[in-house]
């Protein structure tokens, strides 16, 4: 197996007295599609939020591409009330805001779609490239829209950047098959298209690792099948690693290389789709409810 791009070590997230994620350790290899499954409220999204900087984990370490991306140990008030395990094992505190983590190459989508809904699909993708802008706001203001300079041999850097960004946005939308809705308001698009656009927007940040939080939520079987093909395709095209939370078992079983299953914040099983689907612990915790989840 190739090198690990993401490694979570004993991540614990405690809210007040509630331990939502309890010393979760997992690793995602470069180029893999890994799924994180578990019943509702198991702590899957919390685990995602710990990786992407939305939450600071209470204890543990997240390593991305060989370097510590997030690390924490119980400090302050939490020192006394900490109820998780592995206390004292970590002493380093590394905290990054979500934008810094995105800059490292980790992009994500959200469980409940969070598009910039009153902007067009094109603008949504364009905005996601803002973090790559190198020129300052003054030259951006003066030159970004200075179309009359286009005939010059050497355009101002800001104009060149703007043109490249637009070009890339068009290209990305074409590649994910959304060219025809480019100028539609994102909020008015059909649900399935919105999901796809959210993934396209995440791709615009040039990620190496893509985190998908329930990408197939609310989709019918046909849309789900299209989505699984789509995920496999973009993974290949952009040389991505995909780590996803998903409830749709057919999607998970079909495309993931490995599956982690958590319940009540604790890891209960790990393995390839075959192993997971026959694991009694998983069946008890999760698949027993699978009908229920799939009917959403």
């Amino acid at each position: 197996m190739s090198e690990d791009i993401l490694r979570m070590e004993n991540i614990t997230m405690q809210f007040g007295g509630v331990v939502a994620v309890d010393s979760l350790s997992l690793h995602v290899g470069e180029g893999e599609i890994v799924a994180l499954i578990g019943p509702n409220g198991a702590g899957k999204t919390t685990a995602f939020n710990c990786i992407t900087g939305v939450y600071e984990p209470t204890n543990g370490r997240v390593e991305f591409n060989g370097q510590t991306m997030v690390a924490n140990c119980p400090h302050g008030k939490m020192k006394k009330t900490y109820a998780g395990s592995h206390a004292g094992e970590y002493t380093e505190i590394v905290s990054r805001t979500p934008d810094k983590i995105t800059a490292l190459g980790v992009a994500r989508t959200f469980q409940n779609i969070r598009l910039f809904s009153s902007l067009t699909a094109f603008e949504n993708v364009l905005i996601a490239q803002h973090m790559h802008v190198k020129t300052n706001f003054l030259s951006e203001s003066f030159f970004a829209n200075a179309a009359f300079l286009d005939k010059m041999k050497t355009k101002p850097k800001a104009r060149q950047e703007e043109l490249d960004m637009r070009e890339r946005a068009h290209e990305l939308l074409r590649e994910v098959g959304l060219s025809d809705v480019e100028n539609e308001e994102a909020g008015n698009l059909p649900y399935g298209i919105q999901r796809r656009l959210e993934i396209a927007r995440a791709l615009a940040t040039n990620p190496r690792l893509l985190l998908l939080d329930e990408p197939a939520a609310g989709m019918n079987p046909q849309e789900t099948a299209e989505l699984s093909a789509f995920i496999v395709e973009i993974k290949k095209r952009y040389k991505l690693t995909v780590f996803m939370i998903e409830h749709h078992m057919d999607l998970v079983m079909k495309i993931s290389d490995r599956i982690y299953c958590i319940d009540f914040g604790k890891m209960i099983a790990e393995g390839n789709p075959k192993e997971i689907s026959s694991n009694p612990k998983v069946i008890e915790a999760y698949l027993g409810e699978a009908d229920h989840a799939e009917n959403n």
């Binding site: 939305v54 995105t102 992009a107 969070r114």
Partner: peptide, 17 residues
């Protein structure tokens, strides 16, 4: 505009709030 539309998403897209 991205911040106006959705702060969480804007930050996740690498915009320093």
């Amino acid at each position: 505009t991205a911040i106006r539309e959705d702060e969480v998403a804007a930050e996740a897209m690498g915009i320093n709030l």
